[in-house]
């Protein structure tokens, strides 16, 4: 599949949050790097159909971002999300599965499977409000995957994860990226260094780098530091 972002712009009053960005993604893991306020979240929210762009178009294989069909293919983890206080981890994922239109039996099976994958099987029945930040984030990852998305958009998915969880998450994403378009933002270069076959870099609403990062371009971390620090 091909996800096309075509001259996308988002303007808030007199601030250009995203400035005419175009790129194309296909199956594989793409890392989105940039400092806070570079426009990463705005871009990802537009790509998830949550925010309407001021101008430009986003579509996957011709299916526009505004459509139900696009959302049916989408898995999205927002940078920050809440939950209904009465929800357990299992209920949370089941709830999202229901909204994704997944048939009940299938949703149950998939939910258990994913809670196992993110290592929450044992606490699946516990309320999310008793969870640590990292555990909550893992619930978020599970809900994003529940519909077997073909487009997976993850906004700072590693925030709050401890080093062990990070490694585990990286492996999971690398696996999923084999047949899914994965875009994930971070400001930690090591998160994507080894698994991203494509790197996007944003600065002040613009794309300053696009494409695979190969050794001959030097150290990604160093480049990143020079650009942003």
């Amino acid at each position: 599949m091909n996800l096309t972002v075509d001259r996308i712009t988002k303007q808030y009053k007199n601030k250009l949050a995203v400035d005419r960005i175009s790129f194309r993604l296909s199956e594989g893991v793409t890392g989105l790097l940039g400092a806070n306020g570079a426009g990463k979240t705005t871009l990802m929210r537009m790509m998830s159909g949550i925010l309407e762009p001021t101008s430009g178009e986003i579509a996957v294989d011709g299916i526009p971002v505004q459509s139900e069909e696009y959302r049916a293919l989408l898995g999205y983890l927002p940078q920050d999300f809440g939950y209904y206080p009465e929800f357990s981890a299992r209920e949370f994922v089941l709830y999202i599965a229901a909204l994704k239109g997944i048939e009940k039996k299938k949703a149950r099976k998939k939910t258990e499977e994913l809670l196992e994958v993110v290592g929450l099987s044992e606490v699946a029945g516990k309320k999310i409000r008793t969870f640590s930040g990292g555990m909550k984030q893992r619930v978020g990852i599970a809900q994003a995957l529940v519909n077997d998305p073909k487009i997976l958009i993850l906004d700072e998915p590693t925030a709050g994860l401890d080093p062990k969880e990070r490694v585990r998450f990286r492996n999971l994403i690398a696996e999923i990226g084999k047949d899914t378009i994965v875009l994930f933002s971070t400001h930690i270069v090591s998160d994507i260094e080894h698994i991203a076959n494509n790197v996007l870099m944003m600065k002040e609403g613009q794309l300053i780098h696009e494409g695979a990062w190969s050794e001959d371009k030097g150290d990604l971390e160093k480049f990143y530091m020079e650009e942003f620090e």
């Binding site: 949550i50 139900e68 999300f81 239109g101």
Partner: peptide, 14 residues
């Protein structure tokens, strides 16, 4: 009020 809007918007039913 529960911060679920973004998650719910990105689902099929929306």
């Amino acid at each position: 009020w529960c911060g679920m809007t973004e998650l719910e918007m990105a689902t099929r039913f929306s």
